[in-house]
Design a protein around this nucleic acid. Sequence first.
DNA 1: TAGATTGTTAATCGATTAACAATC
DNA 2: TAGATTGTTAATCGATTAACAATC
Lengths: 229, 229
Amino acid sequence: MVDLVREDRTSVRSHPMVGASASRRISEATVARLPIYQRILLGLVGGGTTTVSSEQLAQLAQLNAAKVRKDLSYLGSFGTRGSGYDTRFLLGQIDRELGLDADWPVAVVGIGNLGRALANSRGFASRGFRIVGLFDIAPEVIGVTMAGIEVHHVDDLPIYDNPAIGVITTPASVAQEVAERLMAVGARSILNFAPVVLMVPPEILVRNVDLSIELQVTSFYLSHQQAWT
Amino acid sequence: MVDLVREDRTSVRSHPMVGASASRRISEATVARLPIYQRILLGLVGGGTTTVSSEQLAQLAQLNAAKVRKDLSYLGSFGTRGSGYDTRFLLGQIDRELGLDADWPVAVVGIGNLGRALANSRGFASRGFRIVGLFDIAPEVIGVTMAGIEVHHVDDLPIYDNPAIGVITTPASVAQEVAERLMAVGARSILNFAPVVLMVPPEILVRNVDLSIELQVTSFYLSHQQAWT
DNA sequence: TAGATTGTTAATCGATTAACAATC
DNA sequence: TAGATTGTTAATCGATTAACAATC
């Protein structure tokens, strides 16, 4: 591993748009909200609601209606003035924009409680994502089946379908090595739950989720609350 | 529960600063980075490094040095021109700013894989946080001890120490009810892992973490990658 | 038509970053 | 002193929001 490059963790934005069908570059903040709209629309469609206004969507997502309209306008002009958005159609457009109509092979490495939680989670087994394997090194979990998928040894990573997305739920101490193994089998993106900053080449997309950071941020706002309540 | 009010999920910023010792209002983006600096400093102090420059910190956090200096300047002027920051002192200042020198009783509701992961996690058992109880409704987990803490029935929430922070790791279908029970026993803040938008009064702080949203955002960037690589 | 709601503009607000004087 | 590095300013960039013309 030679050309590891330190990359800003918010570096996604820094890549220039070169493709033709540019439209307007969709904002990063909007991308983070699309899954929320998706989830809400899933509920509305399931409940038989056929039309929804930006104001209703805003209420359900606890956002501002102007923000909802602006977000949705990145996808195209799919609303109908006077009545709102067709729920089923809008859901389809959001799915398409999120790339959920593609097939993303996912490998989860580190089958502790968090890995188990992800393997069993609804979101990970859903449309778009396909778990190609669960991986660990502990003899006592290898061979165990969870959520219908067997746990293999990390050394066997090359045997299974190449993952596009690697999910790291190992201890921090081995996360970098695991990232390198995932990249070696072709992973183009890493969802990292280990509390460590990974070093990867710039073409690899890393998203970090750190559960204890969330708790610390909560602590900050709690301890400063008297200042604004 | 009468005065439930829909609250913008980023509403923390909307509270006006009224206290006296205002200094400069610390930016929300900065708050989210303080735990990252904290983690890095913990490693440096543990490794015996006594001084660190903003440039070094930036490398370790994969950020821009100007951003690091700006972030740290919110806490005060703790650096020394020409040499950098004293690691141990800076760590102490960040801990203080994050409120980690306080005692935050935490209740975790929903002892599935994710709840177990949190209960066992280093970050949740660390300085500042004290788990007052683990709660569930499933008979098979009640009475079980994990990470040294017994799992109780949610109905017994009022028996234990009032939590300042409630962590919800239940299915989405019961998350709202759990939130109300947590608020009823005094929780001022909720860390919500259930994929649902909670309705709470404005004085309650909610932070949402949705693991499948992260996966969907990854999918978005993967499917748009050819546009910028 | 009248009422409702979108899509977009422009103003505003907040975050990032380069640059550099201050100073150890 | 000379070199290094901070703390802060100002420019820039990106995100939010109110407002409203367009239009169903």
